[in-house]
Design a binder for these strands. Structure first.
Lengths: 185, 185
DNA sequence: ATACGATTTTGATATAAGTCAAAAAAAGCC
DNA sequence: GGCTTTTTTTGACTTATATCAAAATCGTAT
């Protein structure tokens, strides 16, 4: 069973017919560290899962890269704007380690939502969970100091600290690398 | 047709049977300015729509109130945590003007999702739209200065500026009232 | 119109975090 | 192992925003 289907099953019952249809539309990729999966401006996008690897989403602000999120193994994710709307992505998705990805395109998924309406339960649950995660990030940015945001990241994604360099983490937290270095000390 | 059903219909097709079931479970409230609709710690919650009025969601941080969002007429909203999970709300919802509300409880809604699985399409679309709005707020908090966040608020919810006092807006932006006063000048 | 409470503005000073430059440390590479 | 490149830390100084206190303005009821 592919890891994408495994993730779907966490959110609700997926019968064998639909699972087979998802299987048929799942694409596997192997990507080297540094390669991109999605570029700013693209419309085509997917939900995807890493069976191994690490990923970051970033965008450009005044010519500088800023990280918007990181993804580890066995989580389902996608770029919100192109997955949930017709609008192009404003973010880029890049691999920080060699990675294996299982992905289903938005077009294929929308077709399945249409043919098998009961799949919308899983789609709803996923979007609802994304809301929870986004709200937690909003709270962190809204109410916490730089040092507190760093603590929150450690609490929510403890592995990241050892896999990602300081500059990437600082830009995710919305502070400079120098400030983060001072916080850590 | 009640305003809650009108909102649902924006997100997808709602047949007459389901519309009637929603109608049956919709509750109408009239609330005076200053009254609360939801208190921190409550589990019971709802999706709701104001036909007239204005609402704020706030929480306590170090004994101070901070506003997390504002709601105007003819938008659907709810408190994310109690609506999308079993967890109690960390926020309070209070009316800033006399308001008329049409609400459906999470329990009733979940029952309808179960009986009429096709309703999950609308539920998915709503949650997906919430994600878009939350992501926009994250971008604002993550990348913008206080003055830029104020501009973003004016762009996204231009009416609020005239209906809500400075202190409330400042706390929503994550700055002090004094700073906002200086930005405005 | 007047007086009261609520809201907004102003001023002086303090603090958190940013910037720029350079040094130190760590990771890759032949 | 020594050399290069990348990453992290340190230092000096600047800027954005917070804090505390007080004054000014606005809104509303009498």
């Amino acid at each position: 069973m592919n890891p994408l289907i495994e993730q779907f099953k966490k959110y609700g019952y997926l019968n064998e017919v639909i699972a087979a249809e998802v299987e048929k539309r799942t694409r596997y990729f192997f990507k080297k560290k540094g390669e991109h999966f999605l570029r700013e401006g693209q419309h085509a996008s997917s939900y995807f899962v890493l069976s191994t690897g690490l990923i970051r989403a970033y965008f450009l602000k005044n010519g500088r890269e800023m990280n918007s999120w990181f993804g580890e193994e066995n989580q389902i994710f996608g770029s919100i704007l192109p997955v949930y709307t017709e609008k192009p992505s404003f973010e880029n998705i890049q691999f920080l380690e060699d990675s294996e990805i299982y992905a289903i395109s938005v077009d294929d998924l929308n077709e399945l939502y249409r043919i098998y309406p009961e799949l919308n339960l899983i789609g709803r649950k996923i979007a609802e969970e994304v809301c929870i995660i986004l709200e937690e990030r909003i709270m962190s940015l809204h109410t916490e100091s730089a040092a507190e945001r760093y603590q929150s990241l450690i609490r929510l994604q403890p592995n990241l600290i050892n896999r990602i360099n300081l500059g990437h983490i600082a830009s995710y937290l919305g502070i400079t690398q120098e400030t983060l270095s001072r916080i850590r000390r």
